[in-house]
Simulated scan of single mutants.
Amino acid sequence: MDVLSRAVMCFCLMGWMTLGWSNAAQFTSINMKRNIDKLKVHYKISKDQLFNGNPVFPKDTFEDSEQRVLMSVVLDVYLSIFGQMLNQTGDQEMIESLKYVKGKIQDLQKHYFLGRIPELRTHLQNLWAIETSDTTVQGKALSEFITIYEKASKLALKFHLKKDNRRKRRQAQRLKSHIM
Results as ranks from 00 to 15, higher is better:
residue 115 G to C: 06
residue 124 L to K: 13
residue 116 R to W: 13
residue 127 L to H: 08
residue 127 L to I: 07
residue 97 S to A: 13
residue 119 E to F: 03
residue 120 L to V: 05
residue 125 Q to M: 11
residue 114 L to A: 08
residue 113 F to Q: 10
residue 127 L to R: 15
residue 99 K to T: 15
residue 112 Y to F: 14
residue 113 F to K: 07
residue 99 K to W: 04
residue 123 H to R: 05
residue 126 N to H: 13
residue 100 Y to N: 01
residue 109 Q to F: 01
residue 121 R to E: 09
residue 109 Q to G: 14
residue 97 S to Q: 06
residue 98 L to W: 01
residue 95 I to T: 08
residue 128 W to A: 05
residue 121 R to A: 11
residue 100 Y to W: 08
residue 102 K to Y: 10
residue 97 S to T: 03
residue 104 K to F: 14
residue 96 E to G: 02
residue 107 D to E: 15
residue 98 L to P: 00
residue 117 I to R: 10
residue 113 F to V: 01
residue 125 Q to A: 12
residue 95 I to M: 02
residue 95 I to R: 10
residue 110 K to E: 14
residue 110 K to I: 09
residue 102 K to F: 03
residue 96 E to N: 12
residue 105 I to T: 06
residue 117 I to N: 05
residue 109 Q to I: 06
residue 99 K to I: 14
residue 103 G to Q: 03
residue 101 V to D: 02
residue 120 L to R: 00
residue 113 F to N: 03
residue 116 R to V: 09
residue 109 Q to H: 08
residue 121 R to W: 10
residue 96 E to I: 10
residue 120 L to G: 05
residue 114 L to M: 13
residue 128 W to G: 07
residue 111 H to S: 04
residue 119 E to Y: 08
residue 117 I to L: 02
residue 116 R to E: 14
residue 120 L to A: 09
residue 105 I to P: 02
residue 124 L to V: 12
residue 100 Y to D: 05
residue 124 L to S: 09
residue 120 L to E: 05
residue 112 Y to E: 11
residue 106 Q to D: 11
residue 126 N to T: 06
residue 113 F to I: 04
residue 109 Q to V: 07
residue 122 T to G: 11
residue 127 L to Q: 10
residue 104 K to W: 04
residue 95 I to V: 10
residue 127 L to V: 15
residue 117 I to A: 00
residue 123 H to N: 11
residue 97 S to F: 04
residue 106 Q to E: 10
residue 125 Q to F: 04
residue 128 W to H: 03
residue 106 Q to T: 08
residue 114 L to G: 15
residue 123 H to A: 14
residue 96 E to Q: 14
residue 96 E to M: 05
